Simulated assay, not measured.
Amino acid sequence: MPYNVKLDAFEGPLDLLLHLINTYEIDIYDIPVSVISEQYMNYIHTMKELKLDVASEYLVMAATLLAIKSKMLLPKQEADPIDQQMGFEVEEDPREDLVNRLIEYRKFKQAALHLKEKEAARSLVYTREPADLSAFGKNEETVNPVSNVTIYDMLEAMQKLFAKKEKNLPKRTTIERQEIPIELRMSQIINELRLENGRKRFSELFHHHNKEHMVVTFLAILELMKTKEITCNQDGNFSEIFISVTGEK
């Protein structure tokens, strides 16, 4: 049976488009549709390669981007001043509707972030004297398994690995099918990390050319993140992602 994973980190196609716009420092009012649609499709293909559940709304957005791209390729007719004065419709920018949706989505996302910060600040306010809880022992600090790494960073790292492995494949090779259980690969990853003082580069965990092995490794990493057995850190955009065992440095 295929091992399917659905990630809650995806908030929808508009969220993915905003991520691409911010990553590539694109002006939201003048989106280069050709570039953004190519990057968007790369993410969709990578999600399918990893057998992740791709919601239909992502495919609808992909079709929308391709439709806008096609309209942008058509020759533009210059607006006639006489037609404008007489109230005839002037050809609109095919990106206008998408830009408006992105701007509205960004407003709501920023508002949600602001409310979340308010919620976090309010959760620190207490209306009673602190009770003596020494008898219950110290609660372990909750560890964020993804730290400053987003699911888009993980997918981008996998895109680079796929491209690098495919480039280095020999022209002739013997294909051997080898089934690797997710649980076994999870245990192997933990052991590999502990042999390297509990920390290793994301790319170093993919030391096999076999695509099935790479996919199983990626899914095992996601499962370990979900169970908070490992943490992921990234110093900045496009920099290397580091995987470490939770609680070990």
Rank of each mutant, 00 (worst) to 15 (best):
A63L: 09
F136E: 12
V33D: 00
D93W: 00
F108A: 08
E92L: 13
L98H: 10
V60G: 01
L65M: 06
K69L: 11
L52G: 09
E104G: 02
S34N: 13
A112W: 00
A112V: 00
L102E: 07
S134K: 14
A135W: 09
L50H: 10
V90W: 00
V99T: 13
Q84L: 11
E38S: 11
I44Y: 05
F136V: 11
L113C: 00
R106Y: 03
I21V: 15
L17V: 12
L66E: 15
L59V: 15
G87W: 05
H19I: 09
Q110N: 14
E96N: 09
Q77K: 14
D97Y: 06
M72Q: 14
D132F: 08
Y29A: 09
N22E: 12
N22Y: 12
I82L: 12
V125W: 01
P130N: 04
I21N: 06
R128L: 05
M72H: 07
A112C: 01
K71L: 15
A135E: 11
A111D: 03
T142F: 10
V60P: 00
E129L: 13
R95E: 09
H19F: 15
I82N: 04
L74P: 02
K118I: 10
M61A: 09
A63C: 11
A79L: 08
Y58W: 04
A62C: 05
K116M: 11
V60S: 10
R106M: 02
Q110R: 11
P145S: 08
K118A: 07
A63D: 15
P81S: 04
N100I: 05
L66Y: 03
K116W: 10
P145L: 05
I21D: 12
E140D: 12
V60I: 11
Y29V: 03
Y58P: 02
M41A: 10
T142S: 11
Y40V: 07
A131W: 08
L113W: 02
Y24K: 13
Y105M: 04
K138C: 05
V35W: 05
K76G: 03
E140N: 14
A111H: 11
R122H: 07
M86P: 00
D30I: 00
D27G: 02
Q84Y: 08
A112Q: 03
S123Y: 01
N100V: 04
Q77G: 09
T142P: 02
P81C: 10
A55G: 12
R106P: 00
H45K: 11
L20C: 10
A62P: 01
R101G: 05
V125R: 10
H45S: 13
A67E: 14
V54F: 04
L18H: 14
A79Y: 01
N144P: 01
K51L: 07
D80E: 10
D27N: 15
I44K: 05
Q85F: 05
E92G: 07
I68E: 00
L98C: 08
L18I: 07
L102S: 13
L113S: 11
V60W: 03
